[in-house]
Design a protein around this nucleic acid. Structure first.
Lengths: 271, 271
DNA sequence: TTGCGAGTCTCAAAATATGAGACGAAAACC
DNA sequence: GGTTTTCGTCTCATATTTTGAGACTCGCAA
């Protein structure tokens, strides 16, 4: 009630959080949006309503902390390597990535397909680790750190299937238009695949018009108490997916997931 | 002169940059230091001189931006996946990583050894990408985003060798004690290896007492105008490093570096 | 139930970022 | 080599902002 009056008193205090922080993060986002070209002062000035001196001040601070760095091109800024270091840590929540990395390598070497570790990140599935195999493959994500909306790809199915029903429905309804529009995926198909997973224990590559030549498999990863940790996923050319190959790959994936969960369990008991 | 007086007037204004930003980044660092366990309020309170409400305010903001997230453990905080996404971008400065990733995979598959892409980051060498091969290997870095002081490992040699003499000496003198103490590496040996690279065109694994069973090779990556972009490095068991194998691996690495540079060159011309 | 720790709220005080425009420096250009 | 454009910094007054102390609520656990 009274805070309503307060919000009106301060023009730019609608969103939560210290403005300096938000500005700094906006700088990072704009820089990231520039890809490997980075961003220029004008990019920043256009995208936000800060004065030039203020932007330079923030840029200097971010550079001092190695969150940004100057591009070889004069007047352009790139993301700094501190983000890379923190990002590497961030991908290892609960130690999952470290435990999974050698397993992905082993799977990729043995089968020649590409394997992925995913985790849920809000309404997204985030790729924590990739290991490509000898056979070429197309996928929605190619590298660590990329995100796709939950619902896209077989790993998403495995993650969604672990959510409480209500949450899942809310989430899917919320993403429906994006899924349809950007990926030509209908939430009915997603629900169908989730059903398939509940019956057969694994998720299949969905038939989207986006990557028609490829397909895949995915398994959810649950800890001992049933909490979802992530998903192990695999992508391959459709022509490689014989029944025999599917059974072999699934067995390999199941094996590694089982071992992983035991490993994680014993690790937690050490602490 | 007069700013001296100003600094004295404001107690905590010695360092550069908005304090809110520094505090937020300190939070991220402390969280990162907690590894996959993350950090608790007390960790933050102990490590910095902010009041509890202030810390909570910052935590909330960072969580809202997905730079932090709550751990499954109540009261603990982990790094958020936004950092992972930004980190993935950060590692792709100049597009180098995207260009190199498939090449690392190809090398690792062909030779079975482990291959690395490094870049310089101030006084550190930062690992932009790893591709492990079929043969097990030990290395100073195991994952993307990890950093070692310049001087450690063969990739460092390749990076150092591209620096102007004066800068190199300043830098090495500055890191000397750390290199000696943490890695048992003398800067004389480093200089010797740099000399070797200048004569033979590649860097060898240094004989440190840290990883006595492993050795490696590294090549600098220079663009068309001679500016250093990074280093391609390789690690393997000493027993695998026959003369023949070394020649083969070096040839493969040289091949990929040459192709990469041409690729990068033509890419830049498109823009 | 009780207890403890996590997280939030209020307020006034004060520190801190902000903008406008001038200034300095260093490429890039001719 | 001289000139111009662009990048980056500085100053200062203003006022928006964060800050700290402590009381308060909520939720988990014994």
């Amino acid at each position: 009630m009274n805070n309503h009056a307060k919000k009106l008193a301060t023009p730019a205090a609608n969103a939560a959080g210290p403005s300096t922080l938000r500005h700094a993060m906006q700088l990072l986002k704009i820089t990231a949006a520039g890809g490997y070209q980075g961003a220029s002062i004008d990019d920043y000035l256009d995208a936000m309503t800060l004065s030039r001196p203020s932007i330079y001040r923030l840029l200097k601070s971010l550079k001092a902390e190695d969150y940004l760095r100057s591009s070889p091109k004069r007047g352009r800024y790139l993301l700094g390597y501190q983000l890379l270091a923190l990002g590497a840590q961030a991908g290892n929540g609960s130690g999952l990535r470290d435990l999974m990395r050698p397993r992905l390598l082993s799977l990729a070497q043995r089968f020649g397909d590409s394997f992925y570790l995913f985790a849920r990140d809000g309404i997204y599935a985030v790729c924590l680790e990739v290991q490509n195999g000898a056979y070429p493959v197309g996928s929605f994500v190619r590298a660590t750190g990329e995100r796709v909306p939950l619902g896209v790809g077989q790993a998403s199915i495995a993650l969604l299937a672990q959510l409480p029903l209500a949450e899942r429905h809310t989430l899917l309804k919320h993403s429906a238009t994006q899924l349809e529009h950007d990926y030509q995926i209908s939430i009915e198909d997603v629900e169908t695949e989730i059903e398939f997973l509940h019956q057969h224990g694994y998720a299949r590559g969905v038939e989207g018009s986006q990557l028609p030549e490829y397909t895949g498999l995915a398994l959810p990863i649950l800890d001992h108490s049933g909490h979802p940790l992530g998903a192990l996923s695999c992508a391959m050319l459709k022509s490689r997916m014989t029944d025999e190959h599917r059974q072999a790959v699934l067995a390999g994936m199941r094996h590694h997931v089982t071992e992983l969960v035991e490993q994680a369990h014993s690790l937690l008991h050490l602490e």
